[in-house]
Design a protein around this nucleic acid. Structure first.
Length: 207
DNA sequence: AGCGTGATGGTCT
DNA sequence: GACCATCACGCTA
């Protein structure tokens, strides 16, 4: 990793979630704790487009304690718990009161593997499965609601410029586990790096 | 490889 | 009271 790599600023996220989801591929997600530093390369994302997207938590302007941070100006974290035991990591996008977000689905471990491994506490260790799912990422990085609503411009959880990913390397597909959506169920709002070994497992089913 | 299922509790109506 | 932007494991083959 280049030492001069720049931190990504909030402005990066203040555009359509579709654009941001695509542009987040190849970026590095960095987690720093007293234990050390972990770096993940983002390889799969999903866009949640807000009021017109019936898969989105903010569909038709829905506003609850859980999702209220989606209405903030882009560049803050939206973390929620799911199935009682897991967390999902999103970054709020677009401008204030346009409640969109990018869901980070899968990542490739680049640095801090021992810490990721310890946090994941896997019975059968598999490097490919360290961070190849949204809640695996949260678990591997030791995330909880502590970062709910926090700006991406902080020193504990942030993004770096990472690697350029050309359009040719990117594939689109429907999003995962949104069967409850009627209209948007099959919209190709999932983005991933073609052929990357760390994309989430369900990916392969649809290829 | 693909499908089915249990765990587990916060959130929403 | 039902749902859920998940995961791991076990089964079939």
């Amino acid at each position: 990793m280049k030492p001069d790599m720049k931190k990504i600023k909030r402005e990066f996220f203040q555009k359509s979630a579709l654009k941001v989801a695509r542009n987040m591929l190849g970026k590095y997600l960095v987690r720093e704790t007293s234990e050390g530093k972990c770096v993940l390369k983002i390889v799969e994302t999903e866009a949640y487009m807000g009021v017109d997207d019936d898969a989105s938590h903010s569909y038709r302007g829905r506003l609850t304690d859980r999702n209220k941070v989606m209405y903030e100006n882009g560049g803050v974290f939206y973390i929620y718990s799911i199935y009682g035991i897991y967390y999902c990591l999103n970054v709020v996008t677009n401008k204030k009161n346009i409640p969109q977000a990018v869901f980070i689905r899968a990542a490739e471990p680049l640095e801090g593997v021992e810490i990721l491994k310890k946090n994941r506490n896997m019975n059968n260790f598999n490097f490919l499965h360290l961070a190849n799912g949204p809640s695996k990422i949260a678990q591997a990085l030791g995330l909880n609601k502590e970062f709910y609503g926090r700006s991406v411009e902080n020193n504990r959880l942030y993004f770096l410029e990472g690697e350029k990913v050309s359009s040719k390397e990117i594939a689109l597909a429907p999003r995962i586990n949104i069967d409850y959506a009627q209209c948007a169920k099959d919209y190709p709002w999932r983005f991933f790096i073609k052929g990357n070994k760390f994309i989430s497992k369900k990916q392969f089913y649809s290829l």
